[in-house]
Computed example of a mutant assay.
Amino acid sequence: MSGLELPRLLLLTDRSQLPLGRSLVALVEECIDAGLTHVVVRELDETPLGRAALVAALTEAGATVISAHTPLYGAAGVHLPADPAAVAPPDLPWGRSCHAAAEVHLAAAAGASWVTLSPFAATESKPGHAAIAREEFRAAAAAGVPVYALGGITPDNAADAIGAGADGLAVMGSVMRAADPAAIVRALLDVVEEAPW
């Protein structure tokens, strides 16, 4: 994986979901203080320069940063969209968003270092998308690549995601929208630490 050590918990950013007046960098810093180590920077409406500045700020805060969709200066890896036409970077570890076990197998065969499989549960971030069947996680496990459950992940269902076969948790909305994001991260890390890996 070209030196990128994968955690059991990934935080994906989306500043559009933040409560009014809250800073994305400050939120992530709180989460790092709570034990978070890895962040996927999305903010796809930002300029590449603005996104690179965010990568730098979060790296300075102590996070290992992965950029979404395209490589960014300072990022340790790239998380590609589900579109199979999205080209993997030749010199960075990369993952891909997947929505079915068959997509996970294709990503693994193409060299992905990890994948997200979503949505695990109903999510405010993507209303109207039905949760995928738990069997998809079991079928995805045979691909031999770490699979993160994404979509509607909360401390209340995190253990269910792990029980379904996920290798880790990827969370966005429940942390971005939280009054106390650090508390959500701590609760998710507690679930991760207690899981029978």
Results as ranks from 00 to 15, higher is better:
123 T>D: 08
120 F>Q: 11
98 C>N: 08
142 A>D: 11
111 G>L: 07
128 G>K: 06
122 A>S: 11
87 V>Y: 15
191 V>H: 02
50 G>H: 14
78 V>M: 07
66 I>L: 11
164 A>H: 00
46 E>T: 11
176 M>V: 10
103 E>F: 09
183 A>Y: 14
65 V>Q: 02
56 A>K: 00
92 L>M: 05
61 A>R: 03
8 R>Y: 00
155 P>T: 15
63 A>R: 04
140 A>V: 01
63 A>W: 10
93 P>K: 01
64 T>L: 15
51 R>P: 04
71 P>N: 15
191 V>Y: 05
66 I>Y: 03
36 L>S: 04
20 L>G: 08
140 A>L: 06
45 D>M: 10
100 A>N: 03
57 A>R: 02
185 V>R: 04
116 T>V: 06
144 G>L: 10
2 S>H: 07
83 D>W: 14
118 S>A: 13
168 G>N: 06
150 L>Q: 03
58 L>E: 02
100 A>G: 06
29 E>M: 05
155 P>H: 08
6 L>A: 09
171 V>E: 12
50 G>L: 11
42 R>Q: 03
110 A>S: 10
138 R>V: 07
61 A>M: 10
67 S>G: 08
149 A>I: 09
93 P>T: 05
80 L>Q: 11
107 A>S: 07
95 G>F: 10
20 L>Y: 13
164 A>W: 00
175 V>G: 00
11 L>I: 07
64 T>R: 11
156 D>K: 10
54 L>I: 12
154 T>E: 15
8 R>I: 03
158 A>N: 05
27 L>T: 01
42 R>W: 00
151 G>P: 06
148 Y>S: 01
98 C>Q: 12
183 A>F: 08
120 F>Y: 12
112 A>V: 02
12 L>R: 00
161 A>I: 13
61 A>K: 09
41 V>G: 03
51 R>Q: 13
197 W>E: 13
194 E>T: 08
172 M>Q: 05
20 L>N: 09
80 L>V: 13
61 A>D: 08
48 P>R: 12
86 A>T: 08
88 A>G: 04
90 P>Y: 01
82 A>L: 13
56 A>T: 03
7 P>M: 11
190 D>V: 13
133 A>D: 15
34 A>S: 15
135 E>T: 07
89 P>H: 09
164 A>F: 00
84 P>W: 12
108 A>Y: 08
175 V>M: 06
129 H>T: 08
131 A>F: 14
74 G>D: 05
115 V>Q: 02
38 H>T: 13
42 R>G: 03
166 A>H: 00
125 S>P: 08
